[in-house]
Design a protein around this nucleic acid. Structure first.
Lengths: 205, 205
DNA sequence: CCACAATAATGACGTGGCGTCAATTTCTAT
DNA sequence: ATAGAAATTGACGCCACGTCATTATTGTGG
């Protein structure tokens, strides 16, 4: 009867490894939010755990790599949401709106930790992790599908995907600055802009 | 007759101060392009000049502040271009297109220095430096003017400005990734998208 | 149940960049 | 010419970094 507790047949070694890695990530999120990414040090992060300084380097090479892992995790959680929206949308407009809503919900929740203004929580460098590029591909695929199905004109899918992402990012930031953040209004704006804008964008040669 | 040489009636103190500041900025541009922003140190920058390490801190408090100054300079150069486009445009479409073209030209020229790939070169552009916010205001003003003149529907000017900026940034990055970067094509895409998209964006309550 | 090997955690240590500051040089004004 | 203001200089103390020999913990064969 006791086998119900041992659902994971892994040894203690692997379990503590996962737990330590997770502890570092959790501490890093808090530290980045409280001190700001730039000001935060590896020591600050490790002090937020029960681990010793040297142990940090068994899991990550640097503060940057920790942030990458956090960003990658975020993208990994977001992509299936986006895919679900693509596969279950009743129309192209429906797809666009639910995708924007999903993203705006995501960043609202992501920034719900108390701390410094959002700008200072993140590194100043632009980072493209594998999972983030996968998200870009997912967006692009959704748009290409719509074009293929005749739901959207034959425009440059790469540029269109970039435009959607740029709108999502900047509009998302603007939305967060307002209180309370109104996800539906922002999503309606973005959806309306893109949907109609498609008609005006140059057709692919 | 010798007064033609002394066009600037400033003392040597002020001249060397400006020259030193400029030397630091020039060196920083090179160092950021060659080593990447994250890897670059204040010492690397100051080694690129004739100055001593302590002198750096007479001009800037940190590497971050140097970058802000570079970004601020860029924005200061860009804003009048944008304003000129606004005041001399024959139509709203003309304004949009020339503004996008101006921005894309700007970033193409800005990234023409040899060095690392663009992603690692520069911090993520922050909109919170004074000149950057002025650029945002300039964009927004142009859009509000168009709305007031009846050239564009009464949409949320803040969101619209953010959308334009987001499109410009992401589309600009995508354009730079292509070789050769085609400014006119990218500008046509952005212009067409926004111009028609405006019709689909929600009207202001 | 007990070695014994494999693996991970620890924290002291050398290194190097950071920001400061007293001493020095350079400029300005009288 | 000279005093005084202003800017430059580089050495210095500090602290975070990343390493690594040591210690502790876990898995395994006898």
């Amino acid at each position: 009867m006791s086998d119900t507790a041992a659902v994971e047949p892994i040894g203690k070694r692997e379990r503590t490894k996962l737990a330590n890695r997770q502890a570092i990530l959790v501490a890093a999120r808090r530290v980045f939010a409280q001190l700001g990414y730039e000001a935060a040090t590896v020591r600050d992060i490790i002090r937020g755990t029960e681990l010793a300084s040297g142990t940090f380097y068994n899991y990550f090479r640097s503060k940057e790599e920790v942030f990458e892992a956090l960003a990658d995790d975020g993208a990994r959680r977001f992509r299936p949401i986006l895919r679900h929206a693509r596969e279950h949308a009743h129309s192209f407009e429906d797809y666009l709106r639910s995708a924007f809503i999903a993203y705006f919900r995501f960043i609202v929740e992501d920034n719900s930790v108390e701390g410094l203004p959002i700008e200072q929580r993140r590194p100043h460098v632009r980072l493209d992790t594998p999972e983030m590029m996968a998200v870009y591909q997912e967006v692009r695929q959704g748009l290409e599908d719509a074009i293929a199905h005749g739901d959207a004109p034959r425009v440059d899918a790469d540029y269109l995907a970039c435009a959607c992402i740029g709108i999502a990012q900047e509009l998302g930031s603007a939305m967060l600055r307002r209180s309370p953040p109104d996800i539906d209004t922002a999503a309606a704006f973005a959806t309306g802009l893109i949907l109609k804008g498609l008609e005006g964008a140059p057709r692919q040669s």
